[in-house]
Write a protein that binds this DNA or RNA. Structure first.
Lengths: 141, 141
DNA sequence: TATACTGTATTACGTCGATAATACAGAGGG
DNA sequence: CCCTCTGTATTATCGACGTAATACAGTATA
């Protein structure tokens, strides 16, 4: 499947599942109408408990990302893609707020911090370098 | 005192205390040899349990940041400043790795992500703007 | 010496996230 | 109809974190 669980992460497992499904829908990996793995199947795959998956799925239903197809399972709801893209920006922004806030509070030298940020940015998202870039015809969301 | 606890944060309280003490030492807010608040005093101040503070203090002792002064309390250990500055960079870098990694996995557009980063950077650390800046004669690690 | 402070240790309790083992109703497919 | 899949619900157990209430040894200070 398209994602994995980080057991060392402090984030609750069901929350990780929620995020990853959200990101998958936002990125088009999961399209509207497409069925998600069953509770038991995903649980087996991630070696976690079915109840944990069920909890994540229920939350995703409450948020309108998934919708039940009677007798068949759960599918990505109509209009979920746009909603998830917005949710994605919100989640990422809040993460940045927290990390940057702690960095600021730590009294690290702002220039040194910016260097750190640039390094990581370059290391993990080389495509976003500089301002413009020669379009690479590589797979992209 | 110089820090505060975020009870909504998923991070354990004792861990928040450890980080903040570490950052305070790294930033020179707490200097080597200086006494830290007593277990009970800090607990009262942060409205948390003395045991929680004690746990944080013990961990800081194990890491060599604090050292006991018999019958008096705990003080910032010799050589802790440099150690904490290194620790600070490591902590911040690992936070950045995690957030950037999740962003990358979310398949957000790299340019959009960079914009988000720049926005937050500007919003929280305006001093780090551009490349150079009028040197402020402020304390720095 | 007596008091008040220091850190430390112990035991009990509550919450929350996760696991585990079930059980149930509903629908698809042979 | 029967079997198997679906999501859902329930109850119990476990561990980590935090709280709470003590108790203790050691030291500074009056």
């Amino acid at each position: 499947m398209f994602f994995q669980i980080d057991f060392d992460n402090r984030l609750a497992i069901y929350d990780q599942v929620v995020r990853q499904i959200t990101f998958a829908v936002a990125g088009g990996v999961l399209r509207e109408g497409e069925l998600v793995p069953s509770v038991r199947e995903l649980a087996r795959e991630l070696t976690i408990n079915p109840n944990t998956v069920a909890r994540a799925y229920r939350q995703l239903q409450d948020h309108g990302v998934l919708a039940g197809v009677r007798g068949t399972g759960l599918a990505v709801a109509a209009g979920a893609a746009k909603q998830c893209r917005e949710e994605r920006v919100g989640l990422i922004r809040s993460q940045l707020e927290q990390v940057f806030g702690e960095a600021r509070q730590s009294q690290i030298d702002p220039r040194k911090f910016r260097t750190l940020v640039e390094q990581e940015l370059e290391r993990q998202m080389p495509d976003g370098a500089g301002k413009a870039e020669s379009r690479k015809p590589k797979a992209e969301g």
